[in-house]
Design a protein around this nucleic acid. Structure first.
Lengths: 352, 352
DNA sequence: GTGAAAGCGCTAACAG
DNA sequence: CTGTTAGCGCTTTCAC
């Protein structure tokens, strides 16, 4: 009868079956334009009967909108970025868009390659965690885009979304104080990483607000990894100190590494050393003791980024950065030194 | 001069600039067909000069190959599936293909929706972790596809790739025996899940091989979550038992939950209770003690799935299942009872 | 309200 | 080896 046994049905098949023209069928299918109710019904029925499915390639080609969005993150395997991807995915799907996901491994060359691929795929726009610090050609990605992550913050004029580090640090510091830790030590990322400066700036701001001299705060740095945190903690413990040690790690992996170092030094967390992290990765929940940390809203960031991207695509210039609030997750890695035992208080953070 | 200030350059712009015809330009750009070296050079230069980039939408439309692949997994946020996605992503990129990623949340309806979206996007094929157990319409996805994960194993005639559960269980059991644990208890998934049966079958096979009566093995089940594992462990500990308890959990999350239950019961892992998991998620590394487990090769599964999918697309019917070997990761959650100290063996679970 | 026709950017015969 | 000619499936004027 019909030759649609092998071919996938096209709009022409639907039109023929409904006894209308291509364009009428298109109008009915797209739900656009003025069209007779009865005609529309007929077309829709014909479409269902033939098993017609819109060819998005063709739509994209003709309309200039592919219905696809790109996402370039450092590593989909990383729990934080996985959350971001999930949020973006869900929000995109909600609007009928699909997401092309790529991992850059913090490598500028890979990032460029992937953006190129996205451009050729004619995605309508892209969400990118920029790895390259040193070039402002970002403006010439050649497609609508939105940045995500803390590394994006420095591009003030570019639409971006990330966690509110200032608020996060304040949350952490206030919590530490509430537990009787007044002068924590810090484990931060390597100097090369943008996020480090951002984190330290927030710490500094907070100290100024609270009339604390940032100079007295001990600090060690290392890679944003378990091993980096472990070594930094080791160095911290080698420093002369008295009483309870409290550490604020700029990243959960480092915090977990620090925890290991504490154990390896024959000390106990939280009895001897208190640790607070930053990220909210699942592993923190299973560590022993559970890692108290400040969780970034990964999923919400993904959702929000897609929304910003839509604005960008539709030329609703909402330029500027959106800061998403973080939240504290209390688990067991923090000792409570605030209990009103005079002796206890003196033990304190060692700042006599 | 040229009007290509706004429009993105097309193959026509390149052809004009190189002084050749559209098709010659196309041939040069695609690297296909016979073409004069010098002409090709000229075209390539013209392309570079105009900043031409192939429009994959148009290519896909004309050639019938979109250069896109779909991936439908339960949850990109889950560490195992994240690994799979990453492997697939990398392998696809290697061949110049892009990956559309979707999460189904183990929901058959979502799965169907996503497959529909992929079909409309005209992906060349899809990699799917099938959630629906009860329909064989899989054959009518309407596009080339490959299954992944253990739930796919029952579709013997469909190309699929997953971990080798039989080998994994053997690896685990042998390791337990080598540490002096001869009759472990089991924590397995809910009856509704396909993977459970697959796991138990492997255990059974192993027992038969080793002349062990599977009937003597204690078993509890629960959801594949931390909470599921915790409750199952609780029930296991309530059972009458003497000496050291050894537990083989069918999933790392459950194993981690079991570890919590042990701690909550005032017991110690591994002194009183030994635990071995199955998955290889990162959290197991940070738990205390570190979780000994059998790791599935998530990334390799992703890579392999893409390769199988290419075969499928190219009509190289390699139908059948590919089993990827798992590997043992030794950490600290297993007591070594094999040391020939009679006392040790008797010390056991300490709950007299 | 509906149809005819043009064309998005590219590839694939088919001639030369 | 290169140019000409058709479309791929759809949207979108522009008539009627």
């Amino acid at each position: 009868m019909n030759s649609s046994r092998n071919r996938r049905p096209t709009i022409i098949d639907v039109a023929e079956r409904a006894g209308v023209s291509k364009s009428t069928a298109a109008r009915a299918l797209a739900g656009s334009g003025n069209i007779n109710d009865e005609t529309r019904e007929r077309v829709l029925r014909a479409a269902a009967a033939t098993g017609y499915e819109r060819n998005h390639l063709a739509v994209g080609m003709r309309s200039g909108r592919s219905g696809m969005l790109g996402l370039v993150i450092p590593d989909i395997t990383n729990p934080f970025w996985g959350e971001v991807a999930r949020g973006a995915q869900d929000r995109a799907a909600e609007s009928g868009a699909s997401l092309l996901v790529f991992s850059s491994d913090w490598d500028a060359a890979k990032e460029a390659t992937h953006v190129g691929t996205l451009r050729r795929a004619r995605v309508d726009g892209a969400i990118i965690n920029p790895v390259a610090d040193n070039f402002d050609d970002h403006h010439r990605f050649g497609l609508p885009f939105v940045f995500i992550g803390s590394s994006a913050e420095r591009f003030a004029d570019i639409s971006s979304v990330g966690s509110d580090i200032t608020q996060a640090v304040r949350l952490g510091m206030d919590h530490l104080v509430s537990k009787g830790h007044f002068a924590p030590s810090f484990i931060v990322g390597p100097k090369s990483r943008l996020a480090r400066a951002r984190f330290l700036r927030a710490v500094h701001e907070h100290c100024v607000e609270r009339d604390i001299d940032p100079g007295i705060l001990a600090m060690e740095d290392g890679e944003y990894t378990v091993e980096g945190g472990r070594q930094a903690m080791r160095r911290l413990l080698e420093r002369p100190h008295v009483g309870h040690v409290c550490v604020f790690a700029a990243n959960d992996m480092m915090a977990l590494g620090a925890m290991m170092a504490v154990r390896e030094a024959g000390l106990n967390c939280p009895a001897d050393v208190s640790i607070i992290g930053f990220d909210g990765i699942p592993s923190g929940e299973f560590a022993w003791p559970g890692l108290t940390t400040i969780a970034k809203p990964g999923r919400e960031i993904g959702v929000r980024a897609v929304e910003q991207l839509f604005d960008e695509i539709e030329h609703r210039p909402e330029h500027g950065r959106v800061y998403m609030p973080c939240r504290l997750i209390e688990r067991g890695s923090l000792a409570d030194l605030s209990v009103p035992t005079p002796k206890r208080a003196a033990t304190g953070a060692g700042r006599v």
